[in-house]
Design a protein around this nucleic acid. Structure first.
Lengths: 251, 251
DNA sequence: GCCGATTTGTCCGTATGTATC
DNA sequence: CGATACATACGGACAAATCGG
């Protein structure tokens, strides 16, 4: 359970919106009412509301109220986003997740790796390649580089289960920020070997740099997704244009 | 120019980070120092810092300080994300943007459109199809549906220039939230007709619902991108797992 | 290991401004 | 106009993490 008040409120409101206790296009109780409901300060409810707005669940209307803009969606594909992991998506879709480790080696960063990943030359790394299966179908070909000094004692067996479990629960390191880039690329022979691509000759590729609680990048990953099961979700909140400009988003 | 203090501080810090006045892995001045620097309350600097953290520019370290994790990147492709529009990307890359309107009609939503977009049957819509060129090369095939009641007086000519300019500066409507989904799809005959796909037979597809300041969805858009110029950027900040679960992101 | 200084995290109460109705 | 509701900003209090002596 969350220790902080704002998070408790955030989760409670989120759950109530997801269960449609508050309906799409409806207004939430006013901030002052929420203050009474949750017995807290206005700052605290505003913080929770701000987080819901970032999630694309609500939108504040100056002088009117806070409108619910969450709509339940029918999940067809395998969705990723800022919220879920491979295992969680599998669980939500009531499907079975399995991981096969096809490479586990220790390497050292060089100039070429540095330019691509940001790991300075000479940095000791783990190089892990894994194939992710959902209900027996290979969907993702993961290529990871991990900072060896940040993840002592990593083994092939741990990679086969869950590296993040190990990192968070065994080592006690916290994962904080992940910067991602998505592109579309042609399939390589390795992709074809590990994923059942049928007649697909292209992939969705997610490249990410991940930082721990010390602000140190400890992971560089390229995830190569079978295109027919790939679905990335995102919510963007507009900020005012930087003066003199025209519009700012998806013009 | 921004009227609010937190936004002024946010922009100033952001600019200083981008210009590497504050370097990668360095700590910002402490919050109390920033309070002195900007002559404001701690809440206000914390708000600015929080926004920078969402942007993936900094990361707060409890008891230590705020670390810069921004790294300048070499822009190769045409990048999109929560920040830029087609026109702005073009400007940043010093390239020329051009739009060709290939369809401009008025339609009414029906059951099929409703299921796909969320516009309830009977809703009057504009149906706009446009091809976006960068330096003379067709890169994006845009399919828009706009709520007619929200955008009175839309014409083909306006679509050829910038609909968002019209919406924001002529009508005075504010764009607030955009929910997006990204997938990879096979090219259709229309795609091949409008984009110079060479031997590509697939596309990156971004589907978005956009809400105005009244919390009303006024736009549903499907943007079909030529794969070789497509690059989507994103930063995710981790939140604590929902209790009982294992890990949460990209496990 | 303890203690104190520094720094970030959470929370509160209040005041004022602005938009809506 | 007044009442309501969100937006910005301030100042203060205490907790928790870090670091140096």
């Amino acid at each position: 359970m969350p220790k902080s008040k704002f998070e408790t409120i955030y989760r409670d409101l989120k759950q109530k919106i997801e269960s449609q206790e508050y309906l799409y296009q409806e207004l939430l109780p006013s901030e002052n009412n929420l203050v009474s409901i949750y017995d807290c300060s206005r700052n605290t409810v505003r913080r929770a509301i701000g987080m819901l707005a970032e999630d694309g669940y609500v939108q504040s209307l100056h002088g009117k109220g806070v409108r619910v803009i969450y709509q339940p969606v029918a999940q067809t594909n395998f969705t990723i986003g800022g919220i879920e992991s491979f295992k969680e998506s599998a669980a939500r879709n009531r499907k079975h997740a399995f991981t096969r480790v096809v490479n586990f080696t220790e390497i050292t960063s060089d100039e070429r790796i540095f330019r691509k990943t940001g790991f300075v030359p000479g940095t000791p790394l783990y190089y892990v390649q894994r194939v992710r299966y959902l209900n027996g179908t290979p969907l993702i070909f993961d290529n990871n580089l991990f900072l060896r000094t940040a993840i002592p004692g990593l083994t092939r067996e741990i990679c086969q289960k869950s590296i993040y479990d190990y990192i968070e629960n065994k080592i006690g390191m916290q994962i904080v920020t992940s910067k991602r880039t998505m592109t579309v690329e042609r399939a390589t022979p390795a992709d074809e070997a590990y994923l059942e691509l049928k007649d697909f000759d292209f992939l969705a590729v997610v490249t990410s740099q991940t930082f721990n609680a010390d602000g140190v990048m400890f992971e560089y990953t390229q995830s190569r997704h079978r295109p027919d099961y790939f679905c990335f979700q995102d919510t963007a909140v507009r900020r005012k244009p930087p003066a003199g400009g025209t519009s700012q988003k998806l013009a």
